[in-house]
Amino acid sequence: MDVLSDAIATMRTGRPHSRRQDKYAPWGMRFESSDGAGFHVVLQGSAWLLPAEGEPVALGPGDVAFMAHGRGHALASDVDVPLEDVRLRPDGTWPEPPPSPRPLTGASTVLLCGAYQLDRARAHPLLSELPEVVHLPARVGAHRSLRGAVELLGMELEEPQPGSDTIVTSLLDTLLLYILRAWWQRERHGSGHPTGWSAALADPAVAAALRAVHGAPSHPWTVEELGALGGLSRAAFARRFTTLVGEPPLTYLTWWRMTTAGRLLRTDDIPLRLVAQRTGYTSEFAFAKAFKREYGVAPGQYRRRA
């Protein structure tokens, strides 16, 4: 299994939304904090990203900025222009902008903005370690897949055609994965000593164990068996996994099983007995006990709430 795809699928809720915006200087938009994540792409012109903390970030044509943690931020034509609050609707869609006279000249900046709804109660550590702003500057020949997804998304939003709703949703999901892939590839190759999940996914033994755990959470994995997948002894593998992932192998296995169980209970109507089997528990009673210890409520009650 693909660990990155799994991490996103676990946190994603609802549908992502996006909008193409033509801005005429001077302009400024303030985005409030949310449980989701958002991105901005400058298709034309330039902009300043003003994070809640830290220095302003200059964005040029083709630049991508991703805010993984849902903290408030602003986007403006300059660092000192007045800011207008932008509040997404409860379902994550963008409100219609108020009508305003436009100058005869073209837009000074064309933006592609999007939002994802996430469940942060089970935030995967792979996403939690991202910085407040992931800035991917446009460079010739870099991140070609990401650029292709941006171009296709921009075309669909500029000229909607039959099927655009489904295409845009799929492209937004694709764009998110391309953004994260580009970030971790840059972290891996841009530094001689990658750390955290960048290092974990780059380490053959740890990555093999993670793929196995994600691919078969119901399997009764042992530390020795996981280490053997990468050709390491039990002790050597346990040390390396704990150093890179931040917790021992079986602790991560239990966390992932419970995270998978929560997703199954939210999205599937299968009996609790099957949920227990798919997450490595031999009895429904043992599963219910472990689930309540992790979530604070019984599986059935969690499902009804969801």
Score class of each variant (00 low, 15 high):
Val3Glu: 02
Ile8Trp: 12
Met11Cys: 06
Arg12Trp: 07
Gly14Lys: 03
His17Ile: 02
Pro26Lys: 11
Trp27Arg: 04
Met29Phe: 13
Arg30Met: 02
Ala37Pro: 01
Gly38Glu: 12
Phe39Cys: 04
Gln44Trp: 05
Ser46Thr: 12
Trp48Met: 04
Leu50Tyr: 01
Ala52Val: 01
Glu55Cys: 00
Leu59Lys: 04
Leu59Ile: 04
Met67Lys: 02
His69Ala: 11
Gly70Tyr: 02
Arg71His: 11
Ala76Leu: 05
Ser77Asp: 15
Ser77Trp: 09
Val81Tyr: 12
Val81Cys: 15
Arg87Asp: 07
Arg87Met: 08
Glu96His: 03
Pro103Ala: 09
Thr105His: 15
Gly106Asp: 14
Val110Glu: 15
Arg120Met: 05
Pro125Glu: 08
Leu127Ile: 03
Leu130Asn: 08
Ala138Ser: 13
Arg139Ala: 15
Arg147Ala: 15
Leu152Lys: 07
Gly154Asn: 07
Leu157Met: 08
Leu157Pro: 11
Ser164Cys: 09
Asp165Lys: 10
Val168Gly: 06
Thr169Ser: 13
Thr169Gln: 13
Thr169Gly: 06
Thr174Lys: 01
Tyr178Lys: 05
Tyr178Gln: 14
Arg181Ile: 05
Trp183Cys: 03
Gln185Leu: 14
Arg186Gln: 12
Thr195Gln: 13
Thr195Cys: 00
Thr195Ala: 09
Gly196Leu: 05
Ala200Gln: 01
Ala202Asp: 13
Pro204Cys: 09
Val206Asn: 03
Ala209Asp: 06
Leu210Met: 09
Arg211Phe: 03
Arg211Pro: 00
Ala212Val: 12
Val213Trp: 06
His214Gln: 09
His214Glu: 13
Ala216Pro: 02
Thr222Pro: 00
Gly227Trp: 02
Leu232Asp: 01
Ser233Val: 00
Phe241Ile: 03
Leu244Val: 05
Val245Arg: 05
Gly246Ala: 08
Gly246Glu: 09
Pro248Ile: 04
Pro248Gly: 13
Pro249Thr: 07
Tyr252Gly: 01
Trp256Val: 11
Trp256Leu: 14
Met258Ile: 07
Thr260Ser: 15
Gly262Ala: 15
Gly262Trp: 06
Gly262Asn: 08
Leu264Arg: 14
Leu264Asn: 09
Leu265His: 12
Asp269Leu: 14
Ile270Thr: 14
Leu272Thr: 10
Leu274Val: 12
Leu274Gly: 00
Ala276Cys: 05
Ala276Asp: 04
Thr279Glu: 04
Thr282Trp: 02
Phe285Thr: 14
Ala288Val: 07
Lys289Asp: 14
Ala290Thr: 09
Phe291Arg: 10
Tyr295Ala: 13
Gly296Asn: 08
Val297Lys: 06
Val297Cys: 04
Ala298His: 06
Gly300Tyr: 03
Arg303Asn: 05
